[in-house]
Simulated assay, not measured.
Amino acid sequence: MTVAFHESPVIYDAIIIGAGVMGATTALFLARAGLKVALVDRQDMFRAASGVNAGTLTLHMTRAQLIPHAIRGREMWLNSAEWLGEDVGALATPGLSMAFTEAEEDLLRQRASVRQNMGAPIEVISAEKAVSIEPGVNPRLRAAAYCALDGHIPTYRVGGAYARALKEAGITLIENAPVESISSVRGQGHEIRLTGHARAIHGRRVVLSTGAWLEKMLGWFGHDISIRCLINQLVVTETLPPVMGSVLSIANGLLSLKQFANGSVLIGGGWQGEGNIRDGGTRVIPENLQGNVRLAQHVVPRLNEAQILRVWLGLESETPDAMPLIGALTPDDDAFVVGCVHSGFTSGPYMGRLLAERILGADPDLSAFNPSRFSPSSATRAQL
């Protein structure tokens, strides 16, 4: 008589869905605390927003309420060797946000004031002082806001560093596996079915960290939250002699500039491309590309001499109130979310660490990021 033995499924303490900065950081801190962790992604890790963003570490372009988190996230990037295991090349530089019109100067002063109140060391300086700091900027500016705590990262180095850290921590990495469904299993947390995998995986806890893909998954847990997907265009130039040493932006937020060690200049600022995550594929909008480059050339005239090498598009997710989602999705504390952080690369590792601390039993203040704030019952309570 042949006896059939059925292999028991592996049950993870936590399954993190979405292998970008926030998801991977959450996974890393949970695994180092002794949990058995799996990290799942619909494609290769760090191929979505975390892998194609501009790598700017900035307080000028961070929402005021998130300034304390961005400061701590920036510190983590600059000290990545201590917690990630290797230096990812984060460079600390000053940041200048500039105003060229009266309206821009008014906006600049307003933005600087609210960020100062949240702890950002930002001061408004004269045009003359700004030009003395960055001689390459257009001297026709009216004023600038200066911040000593900016910087940038060559993002192509980050994914590899995380991959090595995850492996050392014993995390199971499952790539190119879109999630088809998540089902609650009594006493065992959740069963997750993946495209291309015959068997489901099981986790006592699940963490959603899928950025622009969050909306559908949040619905599986009863949260009806609209997630907007921004398709930001980024431009990189040929290598140039030094033209800037700071991270440069303008008051209205439509430009960010930085020069890397190899001389290439990265031009960003949220100018939009086309496409959507449902149909797949993204496309450059030529008029927006031209507008972004011309604005960069206005701010730093020497960029008129630069040739564009390539253009790419990165995804950014945003909630209706443009504030992050971080916290529990269920009363049983067996499902969580982390994502939709504006200028999220700066704050990303700190946000991931905060959620890991919450899952491990600490009580960090995540009240402003609670996903239940979008539920009808929360809206009713807020009116009472």
Results as ranks from 00 to 15, higher is better:
Leu248Val: 01
Thr237Leu: 07
Leu214Arg: 00
Thr239Tyr: 01
Lys216His: 13
Pro242Glu: 08
Leu248Ile: 07
Lys216Asn: 14
Val243Thr: 09
Ile231Gly: 07
Asp224Ile: 04
Ile227Thr: 03
Trp213His: 12
Leu234Pro: 03
Val235Asn: 00
Gly219Arg: 08
Leu214Trp: 02
Leu214Glu: 04
Pro241Ser: 13
Ser209Thr: 15
Gly219Pro: 03
His223Ala: 15
Val247Thr: 05
Ala251Gln: 02
Glu215Asp: 15
Pro241Asn: 10
Thr239Ile: 05
Ser226Tyr: 07
Met244Gln: 01
Leu214Gly: 01
Thr210Gly: 10
Ser249Cys: 08
Ile250Thr: 06
Val206Gly: 09
Thr237His: 06
Leu214Phe: 00
Asn252Ser: 15
Leu218Lys: 10
Met244Asp: 00
Leu218Thr: 11
Thr237Asp: 05
His223Phe: 15
Asn232Cys: 09
Ile225Val: 14
Phe221Gly: 05
Leu214Ala: 14
Ile250Lys: 03
Ser246Asp: 03
Ser249Val: 00
Lys216Gln: 15
Gly245Cys: 05
Ala212Asn: 13
Ser209Glu: 13
Thr237Met: 06
Gly219Ala: 04
Val236Arg: 02
Arg228Val: 14
Thr239Pro: 03
Pro241Met: 10
Ile225Tyr: 10
Ser209Arg: 11
Leu234Ala: 05
Ile227Gln: 03
Ala251Ile: 02
Gly219Ser: 06
Leu214Thr: 10
Pro241Arg: 14
Leu248Gln: 00
Gly211Asp: 09
His223Ser: 10
Ile231Asn: 14
Ser249Ile: 00
Met244Glu: 00
Lys216Asp: 13
Trp220His: 11
Phe221Val: 05
Gly253His: 08
Val207Asp: 02
Leu230Asn: 15
Gly253Met: 06
Lys216Glu: 15
Pro242His: 07
Ile225Phe: 11
Val207Gln: 02
Ser209Asp: 12
Ser226Thr: 09
Ile225Gly: 09
Arg228Met: 13
Glu238Asp: 12
Ala251Tyr: 01
Ser209Tyr: 11
Phe221Met: 08
Pro241Leu: 07
Ile227Leu: 04
Val206Asp: 08
Leu214Pro: 01
Val235Gly: 00
Leu208Pro: 07
Asn232Glu: 14
Pro242Val: 05
Leu240Ser: 00
Val236His: 01
Trp213Ser: 14
Gly245Phe: 03
Thr210Cys: 10
Trp220Glu: 12
Gly219Glu: 05
Thr237Phe: 05
Val206Lys: 09
Cys229Pro: 05
Ala212Thr: 15
Gly222Gln: 06
Ser249Gln: 03
Cys229Asp: 09
Thr239Asp: 05
Asn232Asp: 14
Phe221Asp: 07
Thr237Arg: 04
Glu238Met: 11
Val207Thr: 03
Leu240Met: 09
Gly219Phe: 04
Thr239Met: 06
Val236Ser: 02
Asp224Ala: 12
Trp220Asn: 08
Val235Trp: 00
Trp220Gly: 05
Asn252His: 13
Met244Phe: 01
Ser209Cys: 15
Asn252Lys: 11
Met217Phe: 13
Ile225Pro: 08
Thr210Ser: 11
Ser209Phe: 14
Asn232Ser: 14
